[in-house]
């Protein structure tokens, strides 16, 4: 009787693990640029800090932009001379430690707030990337074809 119980518990546990693991290794990195956008003409970008962000992702984005030879500023109010504004949303998960599961970055025209380009990276726990690597992946994909 006890053997039967142990077998059923094993099956249930196995199903639970399969169910949880089925979504564990998802990697997605996409970027789209609007046909009317000319990202090559952008020289100065302002990164607007996402309200709930307490990990200074805005600074990482600004650093990445500067490494591309462009001017970058951060803060809640866009600088007057910005050619584009970046907004972003970072999502975090816990699995042993906290990690960034998803980062979405939008490049907008400061004149009308229109979204010129959007990039997204999604990496689950087993293939997690550091915040700097996530930022690098998204920004690189957005500006790849400029």
């Amino acid at each position: 009787m006890l053997t039967q119980l142990a077998r059923n518990i094993t099956v249930a546990t196995l199903l639970a693990i399969i169910s949880l693991l089925s979504g564990c290794a998802v990697n997605r990195a996409t970027a789209t640029v609007d046909p009317s956008a000319n990202l090559g003409s952008i020289k100065a970008i302002h990164v607007i800090k996402f309200g709930p962000d307490n990990k200074s992702i805005d600074s990482l984005i600004a650093d990445k932009i500067r490494s591309m030879g462009l001017t970058a500023t951060t803060g809640e109010i866009p600088a007057a001379n910005s050619d584009a504004v970046i907004t972003y949303i970072d999502k975090w998960m816990w699995d042993i430690t906290m990690y960034m599961i998803e980062l979405t970055i939008q490049v907008r025209d400061p004149k009308d707030n229109f979204t010129l380009a959007v990039g997204n990276s999604y990496h689950t726990s087993l293939t997690r990337k550091s915040p700097a690597e996530m930022v690098d992946e998204v920004i690189t994909n957005i500006f790849k074809g400029k």
């Binding site: 006890l2 039967q4 059923n8 518990i9 199903l15 639970a16 169910s19």
Partner: peptide
Amino acid sequence: QSKQLIKPFLAWAILLVTIQG
């Protein structure tokens, strides 16, 4: 007593499979 113990596990298994489905 063991049957009563098995029931919750089976219920969980069916629930998980249904969610998967």
